[in-house]
Amino acid sequence: MYDAPLRKTDVEAQTTKIAARDVQVYYGDTHAIKDVSVDLLDKTVTSFIGPSGCGKSTFLRCLNRMNDTIDICRVEGLISLDGQDIYEKRVDPVQLRAKVGMVFQKPNPFPKSIYDNVAYGPKIHGMARNKAELDEIVEKALRRGAIWDEVKDRLDAPGTGLSGGQQQRLCIARAVATEPEVLLMDEPCSALDPIATAQVEELIDELREQYSVVIVTHSMQQAARVSQKTAFFHLGNLVEYGETSQIFTNPTDPRTESYITGRIG
């Protein structure tokens, strides 16, 4: 991997998109997330780093209530999206997930055509009134997923027939198609080769213009390349959260320094 120079980040005074206060997560008896409080900004890429099992993916899945599908998982504390508590009774997790999209570690296209993969979300949420509008949404999403040029001639081909990198970009296009406000990415490049990784990273940088993006990654170079804010998790605690450049050049916590210099993890 090449080491890109740290991007000159331009985080202005931005609005908070997601706020978490004293979040605790339990898997059965295991206390997986301890007292995490963090403000995630709008139109910013935030990366979660930390050793395996530190709780970064678990915390990510709390942000769109994906943990609801796991029976033994219990979430306490307050998480709000635009000031609205997402764990409140009135909130429909299904509606929430339309606003907070998610891209997974392994590309998981549905066993449908490329077109139907992207049209899946818009159809469910009734975003298109007719075929022409749907076509437009699909094209826009595929263009934003930076995969339009590769698939425009074979929209009817099965999505599972694409290469790994193409599949992941298809999944990103699929997530983007529902017009989410926040995009959560759980190690989106861990199953990809360096070239596909570079394409996806480029894409993440473009997505920042419209969305708040949260990315979990094991690659510190990747965190440094794509994100403006970085949060370091260790053993279920949020150890340090700040500007990416500051975390990587001048960490305040000794644990963060040990991790980014490769002594723990």
């Binding site: 994906m66 599908t69 299904v94 606003k99 997974f104 529902t178």
Partner: peptide, 9 residues
């Protein structure tokens, strides 16, 4: 399943 739930289905 995760992919579908993640899209708000």
């Amino acid at each position: 399943r995760d992919g579908s739930y993640g899209l708000g289905a």
